[in-house]
Amino acid sequence: MSKLLKIMLLGCLSMSAFAEEAKLEKIQVPTDKPSIAKGAEDWINNCLTCHTMKYVKYRDLLSLGIDKAKVDGWRGEASLDTPLTAQMPEAVAMATFAKLPPDLSLMAQARDGGPNYVYSYLIGYYVKPDGSVGNHIFPETKMPDPLGISSAANAAERAEKQKTAKSIVTFLTWAADPHAGERDTLGKYVIAYLVVLSALLYVVKKQIWSRLK
């Protein structure tokens, strides 16, 4: 028994020793199409300059209910089946940042914390005492404050930028798993079916076993 106590005690000690990690802001990510479509627009305006989303095509944006004319404006000469590709040529990006800006297709699922991480990172920019801009969540980041949140003049402007960040994250979350909505709907039917099926199987089992004395 003392073995057990010792293990549990040690377990508790180690638990407390690990409670120090950068705190992430928790957000509820909307899953309705209008929010995602708004997010797509914000993403294209703020991120597409440098970032690519190679698994999402312009055609996919139409399925979100975005106006065809708007999509045509964004894609220009490119066909509808072109992936969302960064406007900045790779050579320029390499020269500016010494590394390529990452593809954002799966970003909402590629970090611990998922969408919360991306949101906290986007609003995590601040002005250091020496005047340069840093980031609380990812201090080594090479990306300059994309929304200018570190230079927000007042609370209202900051709130506005936080709203944009959340909107972008909404789009990123959809882009990382575009069938999530369909999965959710289908899942409810599947579970309902399985519950009824299991109930029936239970009755069958009861009935069959009742033959035993």
Partner: peptide, 13 residues
């Protein structure tokens, strides 16, 4: 078979 199938239903849920 009846008992296992009922268990399977619960597992699948």
């Amino acid at each position: 078979t009846a008992k296992d199938l009922y268990g399977l239903g619960i597992f699948l849920i």
